[in-house]
């Protein structure tokens, strides 16, 4: 699979759990306690028959072996003292249950017994870097959608812009809502939905559309600004965000092209937006990358520029500039180059 190597980059973000949802649903006192003091807890799938439950509610931070970042898996690697275990765990995904670590020959039973309290396949509450990354990638995807929507609106193509204003609400908002609340971001779903309605109706009142667009965009920027500055300006962090955006762009471009033609304009445009925002993000850290390694800075910058050539216009060109394989290769190059940066 084309996207598989990305898992090695540690770009597998854990999903998070809706604190509020859990608290509302709270039938367990211990869980309510977890909600109130923010102790990370895993989510047990509720079931009428407890016998098959995954050990019920577990307390303390667990590692979701399906989605955890390499840096989190390193805790298991360190505990067991097995070199490159984190990569091995990633490359053997997905797991249906923790015990699959043994059945998939990632570790042996004795080793599993040492770490079984640390791992899970259930959703976990994200913390630290994983949480920030998850949040930033989702907002980055939103921004990419909005960039391409803006271009299409300016070209007088509200019909083509509409899906890209829809995607942030339809695919992403629900998935980031809990974190927005938690980080004190004022909800902006209504603004996105209002914008979508205006554009769906043909974007006839330009001033109104512009105003609503700016409100939504400001809200997304405001949400990004809630991240600690240290993260937003950390080259290592930003490079991981870029990898997440480019991985998605790569998959979407793959779903746009068939028989040497751009068959699906929406996916072409999605991927254009993600690459545009990735390039912008890289510019924001390029001087720091250069300080660490002029060679890496140059490699990444050249590859990103080359990659961007694949999307010459917001309206899809008659023929693709690059093949899907060429795009995949460039995305991989960028990802590999960035690995050395701290």
């Amino acid at each position: 699979m084309a996207a598989h190597y990305f898992y090695k980059s540690g770009f597998h973000l854990m999903k998070f759990l809706t604190f509020t949802g859990l608290c509302l649903a709270g039938v367990s006192l211990s869980l309510l306690a977890a909600c109130s003091n923010s102790t990370p807890t895993t989510q047990a799938p509720s079931t009428s028959t407890a016998s098959v439950d995954h050990a019920g509610m577990s307390h303390g931070k667990k590692i979701n072996i399906n989605n955890a970042l390499l840096s989190e898996l390193d805790k298991l690697e360190a505990k067991l003292g097995i070199p490159a275990l984190s990569n091995k765990i990633q490359s053997s995904r997905p797991y249906g249950k923790s015990e699959d670590l043994v059945s998939k020959n990632v570790i042996n039973q004795a080793q599993f017994d040492q770490v079984k309290e640390m791992v899970t396949i259930e959703e976990v509450v994200l913390t630290g870097e994983a949480k920030d990354l998850d949040y930033m990638v989702k907002l980055g995807l939103m921004k990419g959608h909005m960039y391409v929507a803006k271009e299409l609106l300016a070209l007088g193509k509200p019909d083509q812009a509409e899906p890209h204003i829809g995607h942030p609400v339809e695919e992403i908002y629900a998935d980031v809502e809990a974190q927005l609340n938690e980080r004190g971001v004022k909800e902006f779903k209504k603004s996105l939905m209002a914008l979508q309605e205006l554009v769906k109706a043909g974007a006839k009142d330009k001033a109104k559309v512009d105003a609503e667009f700016n409100t939504s965009m400001k809200a997304i920027d405001g949400a990004i600004a809630m991240l600690p500055e240290a993260q937003r300006k950390s080259p290592k962090f930003v490079i991981q965000v870029i990898n997440g955006l480019l991985d998605t762009a790569n998959s979407e471009y793959g779903a746009a092209v068939a028989d040497g033609k751009i068959k699906e304009v929406i996916e072409y445009q999605d991927s254009r937006g993600f690459v545009q925002y990735s390039s912008e993000l890289f510019k924001s850290i390029s001087s720091q990358v250069k300080t660490q390694s002029p060679e890496t800075a140059k490699k990444m910058s050249v590859a990103l520029k080359d990659l961007a050539l694949n999307w010459p216009t917001a309206v899809a060109p008659a023929a693709p500039v690059k093949t899907t394989q060429q795009v995949t290769k460039l995305v991989k190059e960028i990802e590999t180059s960035g690995q050395t940066i701290n």
Binding site: A3, F6, F11, H12, K15, P94, I121, A174, T248, S251
Partner: peptide, 11 residues
């Protein structure tokens, strides 16, 4: 009904 983002696993 909760979206699972590209690259993620949900059980």
């Amino acid at each position: 009904i909760k979206p699972v983002r590209n690259g993620q696993v949900f059980v």
